Simulated scan of single mutants.
Amino acid sequence: MESTWTATVVEHHRLRHDLAVVRLVGDHVPFEPGQYVDVSVPQNPRLLRRLSPALPPSLDGKLEFHVRSVPGGWVSGTIVADTAPGDTWQIMDPRGAMSVDDSGRDVVMIAGGTGLAPFRSILLDLSRRENPPKVFLFIGDRTPRDLYASDMLYLLLRDLPWLTVIPVVESVYDPEWGDEWYESVRSDIGFGVDDLIEGTLPDVVTSYGAFVDHQVLVCGSAAMVRATLDRLHATGTPEENILYDPY
Score class of each variant (00 low, 15 high):
V205F: 11
E170D: 05
L19N: 15
S221R: 07
R23A: 15
D106H: 10
L48W: 11
L116Q: 04
V168S: 00
L160Q: 03
T143N: 06
R231S: 05
I79Q: 08
E239K: 00
C219M: 09
D213F: 15
E239R: 00
D159L: 06
R142N: 03
W5G: 11
L232G: 03
A223L: 13
V204K: 07
V41C: 09
G220R: 04
L15T: 15
V216Q: 11
P71M: 11
E11R: 14
V80C: 11
R120T: 02
Y244F: 05
D106R: 10
V9F: 14
A97H: 14
P57H: 04
G73A: 09
Y182Q: 01
D195R: 05
A97D: 15
L126S: 01
L19R: 15
G115Y: 10
V22Y: 14
H12F: 15
E2H: 13
D18H: 14
D101V: 13
V218H: 01
P161R: 01
R231M: 06
L47Q: 11
P53A: 03
D27E: 15
V25F: 14
L55E: 04
S171I: 04
P94E: 12
V165Q: 01
T78L: 10
D141V: 06
G178Y: 02
D245Q: 00
L229W: 08
M92R: 10
E64M: 05
D82L: 12
N241C: 01
V193D: 02
P133K: 05
R49S: 03
C219G: 07
W181I: 00
H12M: 15
I166Y: 00
E64C: 02
M92N: 09
M98Q: 09
V205D: 11
K134D: 09
Y154P: 00
G112V: 12
T8Q: 14
M98T: 13
V169Y: 00
V204P: 08
D141Q: 05
V70M: 04
H233P: 00
S58P: 04
A223W: 13
E180A: 06
